[in-house]
């Protein structure tokens, strides 16, 4: 008995593995029916991040409801994507969607192992013949919200909070900065990053502290591209009664009056579209870029923020938008600058 007790902490660990193993052993009756089967692998932010994972899930849900597809999703909790992707691929799902740039390496590996399988990835570029990479022109959208921030700022100082200092986030930051400078040449942009580990996408306490420090230093509008950490920014904006700008999905509703606008990436639509393609048997691998011109990225105006944005401000931003689409304004792209 005593010996058994001595190993009981070890048993705890085993139980833990069973409890939190994300792919539950439950075998959905997936085989028959001939229905379209979609597997969705979400990033760490999870289904309720009110940001890009949430929008991807929305898109897949829409596919489930309108196309009659079967949808299974998993949230990666430890950044270990390979087993999740593999398990979907082994069960021969019609389409496996990986959400988030952190899955690029894992998907490269898994997609080459299952060449018959159709994969899609949101936000990342994977050059394997059976993968569709859905990319967004973040810099273009960020340019516009940067312009809005600069035009709305009274102090002449605006802020940016990134999750981690990685190229994708630099792309946001660079576009944002360029837009702000275009609208108000003497604007000052303060840039902060939440952290250096994957936890940075999920550390609202830290993001809030960063936001408070920026607001305290005179910044009055902050744009954040930090996944689920962004909720910390909104809390800070509410407490300090300043403005914040949402990202990825339309977050205007989260804290009305304090969220100036959101830089929306139409992930929902893109995910739905790829599901539709698969259901019709028209899946095209390759790279799909969604930009301002095709409505793939935009700044959100709705009933929650229309009082915050004046007519003249909107007009000016619309002008920028037209200029970007026509090529009159070249938005700096961090991806290209780097190469």
């Amino acid at each position: 008995m005593r010996a058994w007790f001595k190993i009981s902490p070890l048993l705890c660990v085993f139980v833990n593995f069973f409890v939190c193993s994300e792919v539950f052993a439950e075998e959905v009756k997936l085989q028959g029916g001939g229905k379209l089967r979609i597997g969705l692998v979400l990033d760490r932010g999870g289904i309720d991040d009110k940001s890009f994972n949430a929008s991807a899930y929305e898109g897949a849900k829409k596919a489930r409801d309108t196309l009659g597809a079967v949808l299974k999703y998993v949230e990666s909790t430890d950044g270990n994507f390979v087993p999740l992707l593999t398990s979907f691929a082994q069960k021969k799902f019609d389409l496996v969607i990986a959400v988030g740039v952190s899955q690029v390496d894992a998907l490269k590996k898994v997609a080459s192992q299952f060449p018959q399988q159709q994969f899609a990835i949101v936000d990342g570029e994977v050059n394997v013949p059976n993968v569709k990479s859905i990319l967004f022109q973040e810099h273009e959208g960020s340019f516009l919200v940067g312009a809005i921030a600069a035009l709305k700022s009274k102090s002449g100082k605006i802020g940016f909070i990134g999750g981690m200092d990685i190229p994708l986030i630099r792309r946001f930051a660079l576009g944002y900065q360029a837009g702000a400078k275009k609208a108000q040449p003497d604007i000052k942009v303060v840039t902060n990053y939440v952290g250096i580990t994957e936890d940075s996408w999920n550390n609202p306490a830290k993001a809030k502290e960063l936001a408070v420090s920026q607001y305290d230093s005179g910044v009055d509008v902050i744009f954040s591209a930090s996944g689920a950490s962004g909720s910390g920014l909104f809390d800070a904006a509410e407490e300090k009664k300043k403005y914040a700008i949402g990202v990825d999905s339309n977050q205007n509703w989260v804290k009305p009056k304090y969220i100036l606008t959101s830089m929306v990436k139409c992930i929902t639509q893109a995910v739905f579209d790829v599901c539709k393609e698969v259901s019709r048997g028209e899946f095209h691998a390759g790279i799909q870029r969604n930009g301002l011109a095709d409505g793939g990225v935009y700044y959100a105006v709705d009933q929650f923020n229309q009082d915050l944005l004046s007519k003249s401000l909107i007009d000016q931003v619309e002008q920028f938008k037209a200029d970007i689409i026509s090529g009159k304004i070249q938005v700096p792209d961090y991806y290209k600058n780097k190469k």
Partner: peptide, 20 residues
Amino acid sequence: MLALGLTPFFSKILYGSSTS
């Protein structure tokens, strides 16, 4: 480790999301 696993587990049961 137990806490690391239990918290998302209960979060999933209560709120349908294992992350927040």
